[in-house]
């Protein structure tokens, strides 16, 4: 296991501070498309502050599982953040096979959110939990197969094992990128769909909907209030950062080799992802619920295609 340098720690701090800002960028992009001015740039931070000052209300039917849900979720996603390389620097923690832990930490966060929703005993929340689990079960193979395809593509006979996010991030140089061929576009499209699904965005879920029959993520968190809801909102923002970081960090060799400048380029790329999410939300209608699995299976098919078609060894 290797521990990253001061730059890596600075990147985690940056992610913790800037993640809610991505939500703001998405919102402003949508507002610009609709011809509105949009909310203030710092609105997500005000919202978090307001929620944190409030008290939490707990139903008598809930148990400790309900209270643990938001905390475990935030802890798991925060830990996953430690493994995300950013701006040509390795992650804080990296070791062989860390991307498996990365994916399963996100799985743990989801498990506890779902358990907390089921713990309320509400039929609506059970329905939301059902959908969340179905969709993420279909999205997870796409992430894993994409990572496997990248590891296979970038594998170097001299240095065995590229089963680490940081190693993949470092191996994706401009030369390799140009020679990587079709793996990059196929995985990029697959991960883009996964990003939209995992962060509950259109066309899979609509973060602004409050119609019970169509909600997925929102319906699960209806009973959370005060600081608990602040944790959940913050976790959702961190997930946007995580999946965006996966997409731009592992697939595109953005950077010039100067530490500070690379960080700036990385942040700019994340803002670009947020703008793209906003554009998708503003221009595409939501899919019918039965069509969503088809989209996610399509993403998995693309990632599988990248994996099986590749003959290995760009270096």
């Amino acid at each position: 296991m290797t521990i990253g340098g001061a730059v890596s720690f600075a990147h985690v701090a940056l992610a913790l501070v800037l993640a809610p800002f991505l939500l703001s960028v998405i919102n402003r992009t949508k507002a610009a498309y609709a011809g509105r001015r949009g909310q203030p740039w710092l609105q997500p931070y005000y919202d978090l502050g307001r929620l944190l000052r409030k008290g939490a209300v707990y139903s008598r039917t809930t148990t400790w599982v309900f209270r643990a849900g938001p905390i475990v979720g935030l802890a798991a996603v925060g830990t996953a953040l430690l493994m995300l390389p950013f701006g040509r620097a390795p992650a804080v923690i990296s070791f062989q096979g860390d991307f498996i832990l990365f994916v399963y930490l996100l799985g743990t966060a989801r498990l506890f959110l779902v358990l907390a929703a089921l713990d309320t005993g509400s039929a609506f929340e059970g329905m939301g939990a059902n959908r969340e689990v179905l969709y993420s079960a279909l999205a997870e193979p796409a992430v894993m197969l994409g990572l496997a395809a990248l590891a296979k593509r970038l594998a170097d006979p001299a240095v065995p094992g590229l089963l680490s996010l940081s190693a993949l991030h470092a191996a994706m140089t401009a030369d390799v990128w140009a020679a990587a061929g079709l793996v990059v576009p196929l995985v990029a499209v697959a991960w883009w769909v996964v990003l939209l699904a995992e962060t509950s965005r259109i066309p899979v879920d609509d973060p602004t909907t409050h119609l019970e029959l169509t909600m997925i993520h929102e319906v699960m968190v209806l009973d959370h209030s005060g600081p608990d809801f602040a944790y959940i909102t913050y976790t959702a923002a961190l997930k946007v950062w995580l999946f965006g970081g996966l997409l731009v960090g592992l697939l595109f060799p953005l950077g010039v080799g100067v530490p500070g400048l690379d960080t700036l380029i990385g942040v700019a790329a994340m803002l670009g992802v947020a703008v793209a999410v906003g554009v998708v939300e503003a221009t595409i209608a939501r899919l019918q619920l039965p069509r969503v699995p088809q989209l996610l299976v399509g993403a998995t098919a693309l990632a599988a295609l990248a994996f099986v078609l590749d003959q290995g060894g760009a270096r």
Binding site: T300, A301, A304, L305
Partner: peptide
């Protein structure tokens, strides 16, 4: 079904390769 058909398609491709 259509979703199953996509999966079977990927399976066929893997089998061919």
């Amino acid at each position: 079904g259509y979703t199953a058909s996509i999966l079977i398609g990927v399976g066929l491709l893997t089998a061919c390769l």
